[in-house]
Design a protein around this nucleic acid. Structure first.
Lengths: 256, 256
DNA sequence: GTCTTCAAAG
DNA sequence: CTTTGAAGAC
């Protein structure tokens, strides 16, 4: 079973690339982030045409997440559903083939100590609470998303430059660790403890050609799924060519 | 020798369609209108890559005309060059294979009797003056362009609806006739006196699917070229599909 | 750089 | 419907 995550940076602007990628990569499940459109504007028709069901939590202009799957996702939950008044469409979960799948778009955080940064740390605290409330560590859970946090020094192209910058501050990395401490494993890092691969490159300053990126898109697995993990990679090719998303898809393979 | 005219409605937005059309239609000369970009922003590289030289008279946002040709255009003149202070980039002429080629984007005219309408009639008067000053009726001249005038009742989809509307008022049609009276022949109408074909359809109101258009893009020939005219047509296919221009290309064939 | 929104123009 | 430009986000 192949599960992928991709921040498409506008599902409408990326419609053709999305369809092409689905056809070539053939994931069983794809977690999408930054749809940047409402449910009404989501291209359900072309996704269906490509052979996928879609559970969507859209929002105008910003955010928006979805779970695409070859079999119909069930028990769809939109948002963290913790009673907090939060208008951002950043979280959706659904069950696909007996696995609970999450598609998450973590807040970016803007500047350190800005309101957005505070919201980001709080959002991570709420996410840990979501896991504690809804799941046991031995549930079958895969969480894919744009987490807007590089977990370790190896995950940024230049530690000196990233030191203290949003996406790489100690407080953010700690917040992510607190979530993982529930019992989640970073699929890519599990398979490749020492490999440096990035999933996001700024559109500006030729960051992609220079390969100056960061790894902020992750797939997390609960413990019972870790022994089934056989492959995980970043599809760097998808970042190339005309009008790419600034993020590349990340995918993993689970054996039966 | 194949000569074509096409209002591309932004040469940058239509870059890929332009290249595809050049490759399939293989005109020796293409007159372009509504480039909507400056000379600095004109995609010289992709045009060259497609096998064409380009003489360009660009303008930011509005207007902009060019002559593309498989052999290098010489003696390029930008504008009507009649001493009138006119900032609109609506006219360019150049010599290609011994033929003087004009690419013209006539003013639209907005509402009847508006300043734009007065400017349009005056522009046509200046154009006739340009011909009188620079040419003899037996020169080899081809003028392609978006003339924003439907010459005859057959050239609009509904005469009753178009009666008195800009593009079809008697004063505009007379202004165009005054230009043609210099000694120019409408290539399409010469070959097909009774055929109704359109070259422009409004983007709105499903005008193209309903084929409610007008013929305002024309190729005019001086007398010595008329006996050499073997074919002329509108490429209606180019108006179809995703992100078309609102105009279709018009082309003609001259035998040697 | 590339996306969104909006207004103005055709 | 499709383009342009501007502003704001990342």
């Amino acid at each position: 079973m192949r599960i992928a995550t991709w921040n498409v940076n506008s599902v409408r602007a990326r419609q053709q690339r999305l369809v092409n990628w689905l056809k070539s990569a053939q994931p069983d499940v794809l977690c999408l982030q930054e749809l940047k459109c409402t449910d009404a504007d989501f291209p359900f028709d072309v996704v269906k045409e490509a052979g996928y069901f879609a559970a969507v939590h859209g929002q105008k202009t910003y955010n928006g997440v979805a779970i695409l799957a070859k079999t119909e996702p069930t028990d769809v939950i939109r948002g963290l559903s913790d009673g907090v008044d939060d208008t951002h469409a950043r979280f959706i979960s659904a069950t696909v083939n007996g696995i609970r799948v999450v598609s998450a778009y973590a807040p970016n955080g803007q500047q350190v100590d800005s309101p957005a940064y505070v919201y980001k740390l709080e959002w991570y605290r709420r996410l840990r609470n979501y896991l504690d409330t809804r799941h046991k560590p031995d549930d079958l859970v895969v969480m894919g998303g744009d987490w807007n946090i590089a977990p370790d020094p190896i995950d940024v192209y230049d530690v000196a430059q990233w030191e203290g910058q949003t996406l790489f501050t100690l407080r953010e990395r700690d917040a992510l660790q607190q979530v993982c401490a529930f019992g989640l494993t970073d699929a890519f890092r599990k398979l490749y403890p020492d490999v440096q691969k990035f999933s996001w490159w700024d559109y500006r300053m030729l960051m992609f050609p220079k390969n100056k990126g960061v790894r902020i898109d992750h797939l997390f697995l609960t413990a019972p799924l870790v022994p089934r993990l056989t492959a995980c990679d970043v599809d760097r090719e998808e970042r190339k060519g005309q009008q790419p998303s600034d993020h590349a898809p990340v995918w993993l393979e689970l054996k039966d």
